[in-house]
Design a protein around this nucleic acid. Sequence first.
DNA 1: CCGAATGATTGATTTCGGTTAAGAAATTAC
DNA 2: GTAATTTCTTAACCGAAATCAATCATTCGG
Lengths: 191, 191
Amino acid sequence: MTDRLLQQLNTIASLTETEEQAFVAVTTTRRLRKKEWLMRQGDICRMVTFIYSGSLRLFHTVDGEEKTIQFFFENALYTDYLSFLTGQPTLENVQALEDCALVQFSRADLEQLYQQHPVFERIGRISAERAFLSLSARNTLLTNQSPEIRYQQLIQARPDLFQRVPQYHIASFLGIKPESLSRIRKRMATR
Amino acid sequence: MTDRLLQQLNTIASLTETEEQAFVAVTTTRRLRKKEWLMRQGDICRMVTFIYSGSLRLFHTVDGEEKTIQFFFENALYTDYLSFLTGQPTLENVQALEDCALVQFSRADLEQLYQQHPVFERIGRISAERAFLSLSARNTLLTNQSPEIRYQQLIQARPDLFQRVPQYHIASFLGIKPESLSRIRKRMATR
DNA sequence: CCGAATGATTGATTTCGGTTAAGAAATTAC
DNA sequence: GTAATTTCTTAACCGAAATCAATCATTCGG
């Protein structure tokens, strides 16, 4: 399982044999059943998680209501930067949508790697930059476009999502209520 | 001017004399008059800009309408990650709200620094992480809270903003129309 | 100091997504 | 395979912000 994570890292910056070994030494694997939790609001996030298979949903709870922020599928990486970096309790909830196989490593070990092999610092930088870009894109979509456009872009970009995720989670991800998504779909069908 | 930028960098990771000199060698300074442009949609962003004094406004143009994304004041850093990292033309417009004194360095030089002194890689990583966190906070506010709450949080967090920035830019930053902001203010005053 | 331009407020109306409530369809569990 | 639960759709109504339009206030240039 760790192989595929290493592969991903190598696409960011290539690792020597030694660096790969140092990295593998700090990873652990883990399984999660559907509906089990990777993270609950109030936990402290000390791990980076690589999704080898399965899927996760990240959401915040606002006024008792779940606001879906992101979905994670195979080959994605997840960590709560805020909690991971500051040691603060997280505001995030992450739950398995499907059974998952995961690879993890801890913040403490990552700091060690940063010290010992600057290439990981580079990987960390590029990863953070990418996370920023993808958040930025989501931000732009969410604030500049109408729900209908957001929905259209999403089916364009991720048609698979609708096969694997219930519609009311997708509605939440789009920043609207399930009833509204239903209306949008109807509107678009009859046009 | 570059001193204050160095100071900021040193709070992220401390630089040796040599590293400081290498950095200073690649910086240039620049002035901008009110209403002049640092960046226009379609440009390619090759620079990181440190605001020594003055202020800037970053906005996107969507359907002929300006959407203010962010304000920059003294000691802030600006770059368009997307354009800076990929070399793509930017979608961002950045205009001086007040006369500005700026310190800049180029992507090419930064890459050199990354190669020669890993500490800059570290600074780059931490900066990207911070940018992510701050965008994430804005995101949460913008998507989870009503315009009224967003306005309240903003005067709490940045009362100075209202002294330095016209209200219609602030409205745009809050994701609403000037008329609506005016009404929110009236509503709050009479309560 | 005055007129023009810019920025803020106010009012009338419209629009769109939220809310509430019900029922239909699909999935899950026994 | 059927009942129970979950998910999705539909409809009527509501409310907050957008839109449209006018007016007021302030700033700026000459």
